[in-house]
């Protein structure tokens, strides 16, 4: 069974890069371009892991994390925050919302996959 990952980012470039890296590593990839769409894609993707950007229109990454954690079905799905900021304040806020971990952009494909493997215990 392939592992399904939902990646949420408003930048099509980042979506493309993430998607390429994930597909190369053999994951099944679902994409959404903001928090609202991310939440909407959950039933279809039924993800094992979510990767999300923070700064997004409509619903930002914090909102997405809170929504996922508030849902009955997906609340224990690991969520990695993909962000250009590495400030401790942001990490603290992400953690408070329920983020599992974080990856600072720009990421290297290997690093991204290593973090995913770690969080999923692969």
């Amino acid at each position: 069974m392939s592992i399904r990952i939902l990646a949420v980012d408003d930048s099509s470039t980042i979506r493309g890069l993430v998607s390429r890296a994930l597909k190369q590593a053999g994951f099944e990839v679902y994409l959404a371009c903001d928090g609202v769409e991310g939440v909407g894609t959950l039933p279809d993707a039924d993800p094992h892991l979510i990767i999300t950007d923070i700064n997004m229109p409509k619903m930002d990454g914090f909102g997405l994390i809170e929504s996922v954690r508030a849902s009955a079905e997906y609340r224990s799905v690991p969520i990695l925050v993909l962000t250009t900021e590495s400030g401790t304040e942001l990490k603290a806020r992400a953690r408070k919302c329920g983020a599992t971990g974080w990856i600072v952009k720009p990421f290297e494909d290997d690093r991204l996959i290593a973090v995913i493997d770690k969080v999923l215990g692969r």
Partner: peptide, 25 residues
């Protein structure tokens, strides 16, 4: 944690889900 509204939590209706993932890509 309060569960999401039933519509989104249980939105298993294929049509809607497929559509949302399509619009993104």
């Amino acid at each position: 944690f309060s569960p999401l509204a039933p519509t989104s939590a249980n939105a298993g209706s294929e049509g809607r889900a497929v559509k949302s993932s399509e619009t993104s890509s």
